[in-house]
Design a protein around this nucleic acid. Structure first.
Lengths: 191, 191
DNA sequence: GGAATGTATGTAAACATTCACTCACATTTT
DNA sequence: AAAATGTGAGTGAATGTTTACATACATTCC
């Protein structure tokens, strides 16, 4: 018995949803197997351990974020359209898979533990570089890059969190323009 | 055998630190007992269960936030000094006990599940009321109150998160003025 | 003043359950 | 036939919690 050749993908989807809702520690391998409709043993045909599953899930999803952010940054457009593109990108990712967004958001620190703080594949580092560049060009006010990164990220991420917890009536993508304006205002963009 | 009359407080402090660092599910009652320097049985002299400990910890800490925010809001000062006071208040709380700040931040949704979304003791609801008032008075730009709440909260909270993860060189209280300015700019305060 | 007693607090060991994971075997796919 | 994939029962370790018993300290009674 083994219809459904996409078992690995179904395991990933089920685990992602459960991890996002109850946390990795709060989710058992039994929970995952039951959600997929398969026995625990089958899980281990595709992943060496629960930890490896959690890590694979994180790396694949996080990698998408990092690549998208770096691509937008590399275009080196003026600051306002760059911010607009970043906001739209993050919220498109949220719309496409809120579970993945929540999971990456919540577990990033656990999994990024080893990664260099300014590694090119680090999303926060890429954002900081974007802001540092804008600062160097005089497109935004001078200031502590780490702080300004936190401010900008907070503006983008918090509406998504509100949406996850049912505190926003619409998905954050509906507010992309307003959020972009808020970021530009908060970082003191010259317009 | 039983010196140390402050066992309950020591249990709370140890549990809070462990919960903040590894999560409630990631922390065992044995971990807590070992950190306190007592046996597991002693834990159950003071708390009926691990869940009750987690809940008591949350409610006592969260209550302080709610009371502080509501107090500042009730003064009904003009918007800019109100925001400044709120930012200082949050960051003073962070400085006083980063573990408590992190724990409340991360677990609020789990514990607030039952609470009415606009209950007076709900911190986010109190912030939303503050912003709605300012909007009604024409002190800030018109807009979706839920979204504006998310923006303001994101600006305040994210620097604290950065600090917790070692991404900010100084505690957020050092940036209180800049964060206040960013909030005022982001919500379109007339100044 | 000192034995008796009640209560709060601690210990050490055990408890049933759940955990992540493994293995021998069956079935399907190639 | 060989490789890949799934099953179902099982493993030992770890989990939250309870238990039987011990100690400290305050109060009460003679």
């Amino acid at each position: 018995m083994s219809r459904a050749p996409d078992t690995r993908a179904r395991i990933e989807a089920a685990a992602l949803a459960l991890f996002a809702e109850k946390g990795v520690d709060g989710t058992s391998t039994r929970d995952i197997a039951k959600a997929v409709g398969v026995t625990e043993g089958a899980l281990y045909r595709h992943f060496a351990s629960k930890d490896e599953l959690a890590r694979a899930l994180f790396l694949s999803r996080y990698g998408g974020f990092a690549a998208g952010v770096e691509e937008i940054r590399a275009k080196a457009e003026p600051f306002p359209p760059t911010v607009a593109a970043l906001v739209r990108f993050f919220y498109a990712a949220f719309d496409a898979d809120p579970d993945a967004f929540a999971y990456v958001l919540v577990t990033q620190h656990d999994h990024l533990g080893g990664m260099a703080a300014d590694a090119p594949e680090n999303v926060v580092a890429a954002l900081a570089r974007t802001l540092a560049d804008a600062m160097a060009r005089g497109e935004i006010a001078q200031g502590d890059v780490a702080l300004v990164s936190a401010l900008a990220l907070g503006l983008v991420v918090q509406p998504a969190i509100f949406r996850l917890y049912g505190r926003l009536p619409q998905p954050p993508s509906a507010y992309a323009e307003e959020v972009t304006r808020a970021v530009l205002a908060a970082v003191g963009a010259r317009m």
